[in-house]
Design a protein around this nucleic acid. Structure first.
Lengths: 149, 149
DNA sequence: ACATATAATTGCAAATTGCAAGTTATAGTT
DNA sequence: AACTATAACTTGCAATTTGCAATTATATGT
């Protein structure tokens, strides 16, 4: 377990499984992809379709259909952009916000439990580390997909 | 960006995109799922199908077919377990090992680049943090899928 | 006005998945 | 030894998801 990639790979997978698990929370059952979609729309301000698709690393064409199904489920709203009518901006409905909030809550509850196995100092160190790492990734040239954060 | 989940979510997504990107490395083109499969078989000792499927959070039935295609590509080998003939143990072929190795190399190269934006001390802190976090996740009851590490 | 570029959608074929049922092998019971 | 239950893995089939090429509608530049 000296290999840096190994460390991140394991963490990432576990976290991914948790995300999957949190999809069936509070009576609602959505797919992992849908959960990511809700998350990403939630944290941006009226993003365009392309913006979100790119952030998620999804083909726009696939994304378009994913959005359609979330609209049908009444979790997402699509509004034509008055400045450029080719563009649609996305936002969550009240119900969508609720679901996204519940998932977020559940995830943080889980993280809290994980942190309970550490000292407060360790927890702070871990959080600062992740933040630092995210910033460094942002500076790197290789990772083309623009994940703002 | 105070939200712990947010920090991990962003990191995880970026890392996931990188993984995806590293699939088309060295002339070989495999899917993300296949890459995960190679990775997981590589780091275990002659695992059974179930063991790997479970670690990856994939249905065995889906997994079975994924393995089949990797066998066809001559990257994976499936051997009947002499002790229990219901079981098949998985391993990588020479070619599979090579591909897995190249992906791993590429990932670590990328991580090196990311770490180049930090001091040596910060890098060590980050790596220790991830390790610590993985251990804590391992202790936690909630994450049912057994990702050994 | 015209050509070009951009944001999003659609059609269609191919790949991926999930469930139920099937196969083969082990384990436990009488 | 015959009988039942369970476990590991596979297969059939229907449904969902995807990727590519083509299409629509709007915007921009000359």
């Amino acid at each position: 377990m000296e290999n840096p990639r190994e460390l991140f790979q394991i963490m990432t997978r576990r976290f991914g499984l948790l995300n999957k698990y949190c999809c069936s929370v509070g009576g609602c059952d959505i797919s992992l992809a849908q959960s990511h979609l809700l998350y990403e729309i939630d944290r941006r301000h009226k993003p365009s379709m392309q913006e979100v698709a790119e952030a998620l690393g999804t083909e726009v064409t696939t994304f378009s259909r994913q959005v359609q199904s979330l609209i049908q489920m009444n979790l997402v709203k699509k509004t034509p952009d008055p400045n450029d009518r080719r563009v649609y901006t996305l936002s969550l409905t009240a119900e969508g916000k609720m679901i996204a909030g519940m998932i977020d809550q559940q995830m943080n509850d889980y993280l809290d439990e994980v942190f309970s196995y550490m000292t407060e100092f360790e927890k702070e160190t871990v959080l600062r580390s992740v933040k630092l790492f995210n910033e460094a990734m942002g500076k790197s040239s290789r990772c083309s997909a623009p994940v703002t954060g």
